[in-house]
Design a protein around this nucleic acid. Sequence first.
DNA 1: TTCCAGGCGTATC
DNA 2: GATACGCATGGA
Length: 259
Amino acid sequence: MEYFLETDFIDLDSTFNCGQCFRWENGGDGLYSGTAGNKSVTVRQEKKGMTLLNVEKADIAFWEEYFCVDEDYSAIIEKFRADSTLREACGFAPGLRLLRQEPFETLISFIISQNNNIKRIKGIINKMCSVFGENGAIPAPETLARLEVGDLTPLGTGYRARYIIDAAKKIVSGEIMLDEIAKMPYNGAKAELLKIIGVGGKVADCVLLFGFHELQAFPKDVWIKRVLAQYYPDGLPMCMQGYEGIAQQFLFHYIRNLK
DNA sequence: TTCCAGGCGTATC
DNA sequence: GATACGCATGGA
């Protein structure tokens, strides 16, 4: 069935291409096809929201959650206007919205992302899903935990192969419990994620922000470090407080697309 | 050929 | 705690 998912405003192009997700493809004419968790859908850009083109009724709630339809961005962006740099970044892509992604998929994706570029990240994740996943979804932790480094290196994961396997093993063994992390405050949740080999502060913050919707997480990658040095040498402005992660994403998308 | 990419582990101080 | 270096891979 088709379903109109109403939001205040969401720009699918900047939302899917701002580096938070890796599994959406632009089909042209305002159409995008993507996979999240074990569900796939095609969406069409609308003025206020989007139309889900091939969705089952039972999955509508899932996509409403995924697209965070109840987040009040007009209020958040209004607060951000107190800072001139952030005001420009929001003006550059006013319809950019954070997604609420599946934690394990986000964890594996951002382990792969380290010291890598977005195009390659997408390719590696897509290969991993088609080779080891069911129906094109990200492989289950149990599947990845059974692999050896040599099984993954053909995908191009490079030295990150052992990190991926370590993450999967710690989840299968129960040493890391994503359901528990979801309930924990930011600092404790981050400490748990840091137990995984290959997960440092930046990857942990990405997982918390994109996978657990911890909006105070502020991932510091090479691009954002340049932003901090150039625009915020004395720290982040007050107007970001509580929504540092959303601000980060506007800034990241802005700085990457400046000529 | 060298440099870089949504960094991190390890060694060393 | 800070800093230096190596690391797989492929595109520029």
